[in-house]
């Protein structure tokens, strides 16, 4: 803490000719600082947290109204429908992931902090998942009941969403980072990210449908887990690069 004394007593011989290296802060302290801050903000804006969930609920309500309330048909539609709507709900909420930080200058501060941006992005994505992906997963069984999902489908639905929504948040963060500087980035974000969601959707909904048909779902869940591991490794790197570009531009 050489500098501490130097500022409080300016006459001390602290202006020595070497730049004094400060203690490099640990990665976790930076990760936790951002995680804690974003969690606090999310908790203070509880109302916004409910929006994706309400969207999820309302769109699922539209399905029987728009197609048929007949149980046999709903049963077939249920796994895919729940997955598609969970995907859309995640996409809608992603636009805000970096936007407020970009607009109030916090993002700029993040980029010029000595902390690796990878972990900062990871902290923000984790908060996003805890406030959208996890509630959607918890809600999903209720929607399964509404769409007459057979009993064997519930566990795979929750498991696949638990793994899959993590992938959705991570992959989506790349799109959110690329479009953060654009005034109307929301729709564009969906356009560029949705094709990348195809594998997650395929394996997520097929885990549920094959469990209903009596096949083991372990394979699909393992693939989803692999996707998640892959996304944790790579998506924050791409998002961090995209954030630098967006702030630079």
């Amino acid at each position: 803490m050489g500098l501490e004394s130097s500022v409080t007593s300016p006459t001390s011989a602290e202006g020595s000719l070497q730049a004094q290296p400060l203690i490099t802060p640990s990665i976790w302290s930076g990760f936790w600082a951002t995680f804690k801050r974003d969690m606090l903000i999310a908790v203070r804006h509880r109302g916004e947290m409910a929006n994706p969930i309400m969207f999820f609920l309302m769109v699922i309500t539209m399905v029987p109204l728009g197609i048929t309330p007949e149980k046999g048909i709903l049963q077939i539609l249920a796994p895919g429908m729940i997955w598609v709507v969970a995907l859309l709900a995640t996409l809608l909420s992603l636009d805000g992931l970096f936007r407020s930080d970009f607009e109030d200058g916090a993002l700029e501060q993040l980029l010029m902090s000595p902390q690796p941006l990878y972990f900062q992005v990871l902290a923000k994505v984790l908060v996003h998942w805890l406030t959208t992906g996890l509630p959607l997963t918890v809600m999903a069984p209720l929607l399964g009941v509404m769409l007459a999902l057979p009993a064997e489908g519930f566990l795979p639905l929750v498991c696949s969403l638990l793994l899959g929504t993590g992938c959705l948040s991570l992959i989506g963060s790349i799109g959110a980072a690329l479009t953060v500087a654009l005034r109307k980035g929301g729709l564009l974000l969906s356009l560029i990210i949705m094709p990348l969601y195809v594998p997650v959707l395929i394996f997520g909904s097929s885990a549920v449908s094959s469990a209903i048909e009596g096949f083991p779902m372990g394979g699909q869940l393992a693939v989803l887990g692999a996707f998640l591991a892959f996304a944790i490794m790579l998506a924050p790197i791409a998002a961090a690069g995209a954030l630098r570009i967006s702030v630079n531009g």
Partner: peptide, 28 residues
């Protein structure tokens, strides 16, 4: 800068904790 990075939803204490957390991690 022009944009302070201060979050309106948080208190000054929470904001300042974040700043020092993502930077040097300790305060004078």
């Amino acid at each position: 800068g022009h944009l302070s990075g201060i979050k309106k939803a948080l208190t000054p204490r929470e904001n300042l904790n974040w700043f020092s957390g993502i930077n040097q991690g300790h305060k004078r």
